[in-house]
Computed example of a mutant assay.
Amino acid sequence: MTDDLQEGIGTALSTDYLQLRDQLTDTQLDHLIRARQFVDDEVLPTINDYWDRAEFPWLLVKKLGTTGLVGDDLTGYGCPSMDPLSAGLVTMELSRGDGSIGTFVGVQAGLAMRSIAELGSEDQKQRWLPPMTRLDRIGAFALTEPDHGSDSVSLQTTARRDGDSWVLDGRKKWIGNGTIADVVVVWARDTTDGRVKGFLVEKGTPGFQTRRIERKASLRAVWQAEIALDGVRVEEHDRLPGADSFTDTGRVLAATRSSCAWMALGHALAGYDAALTYTRRRRQFGHPLARFQIIQQRLVRMLADLTAMQLYCLQIARLAETGALTDTLAGLAKLHNTSKARAVLAEARDLLGGNGILLDFHVMRHMADIEAVHTFEGTETMQALIVGREITGISAFTH
């Protein structure tokens, strides 16, 4: 290993207070280092301008496609064949750089590519996965609707069989990559049997219209869309054969809840790093801020939350590796980590004083972006109800 990579290890794991790096294999460490180098060399020098202008970072995406880091823990079809821990570390690092980049890859690999990989036909996998892992083709995942977010199981978009084709009608909202995607995984309810099915809708299909959602104060450098489907016709061979109920949809969503826990950890790492660096360098009343007892106490509490988040992520990766990760375990990790990340980032922003609201100090952007991660893939309240139903055996959902 080169001296540069050795130096990268120290930087990448500077917050490894519990010495978890000893549990990483050489391959996992390599993925971590390559992701961190991409973030440090390409993302951090430019992302504030993209975020400020609410501009999608096409140049960064093009460069990211050459790194061999896009594909989550999917195997074959040109995907990088990362294990769940490697995939989590990459998600963490990309989110440490920027929430928009982390979210873009989460939609691309965790939702769109995973839907095709787990539920698609062999022809669909061969056609879409290789160019998607290189980011030559962009994907999206259209589940959420204007009136159905947390209760997405009640989606109203319909699919009507018409000979060898299907006709889709409905509306979708908050669809990441929706305006730029080459292929969109659209979830719709079969008008015949009432079951939820998945369809691959390509860019330019007649009746498929998208509109970018503007005036966002979170994840500004990634674009979400409202989608209208008016008599959109897709062929039977574009239906996902493995998607025949909302349970199948839920298999994909369970994996992405784990990604949200890793995303939150990345955001918190960025906030803690910024606060620790700032308080050691910033001098007030003749001393570095870090010399004052109250500052050290607050930094230690941030570190305590951070290490707990790391342990959550490490364990859900281990469970995923053995096939033992359930949607409730992933939901608990998502609930815990997004909540703790919000607290860590609030402390970081406060410790930086007035400078905390400036993009140049890389805290306010993360503080705004964590709000979106806290909400998507199931809010804290929804995760609590799902886990609560399992541990008590009683459903507290209202009807």
Rank of each mutant, 00 (worst) to 15 (best):
T191I: 15
T247K: 10
E7S: 12
A330G: 08
T326Y: 13
A109T: 06
I213E: 10
G149M: 08
S395W: 09
P206E: 13
A324M: 12
V373F: 07
Q28W: 04
M92P: 05
L325H: 06
R365F: 00
T27K: 15
R127T: 12
D151I: 11
E214C: 06
G323W: 07
T66D: 10
H399D: 15
V153F: 15
A87K: 00
D16Y: 04
R281H: 14
D30M: 08
I213P: 00
T15L: 15
V167K: 07
L265Y: 06
S14I: 07
A270H: 04
D123P: 04
H31N: 14
F285H: 10
A228S: 06
H336N: 14
C260A: 11
A228N: 10
E371G: 06
H366R: 08
I138H: 02
M1Q: 10
A324T: 13
I175T: 07
Q19A: 14
R251E: 12
R161Y: 07
M132V: 14
R212L: 15
I295F: 03
Q126Y: 09
D151L: 14
W51F: 07
D182Y: 05
L143R: 01
V234E: 00
F56I: 06
F56M: 13
M1F: 14
D147Q: 12
A333W: 03
G8S: 10
G207Y: 02
V185F: 05
L299Y: 00
V61D: 05
D190A: 04
G8F: 02
T322G: 05
Y50R: 04
M367F: 15
E55K: 13
Q108E: 13
A117P: 02
L335F: 07
A368S: 13
D40I: 09
Q383V: 13
T379L: 07
K203C: 07
T27L: 13
P206C: 11
N177G: 06
A333Y: 05
T91L: 15
T75D: 12
S14K: 11
A255W: 03
D73E: 15
I227N: 04
T144Y: 11
L229P: 02
E145Y: 02
L289F: 05
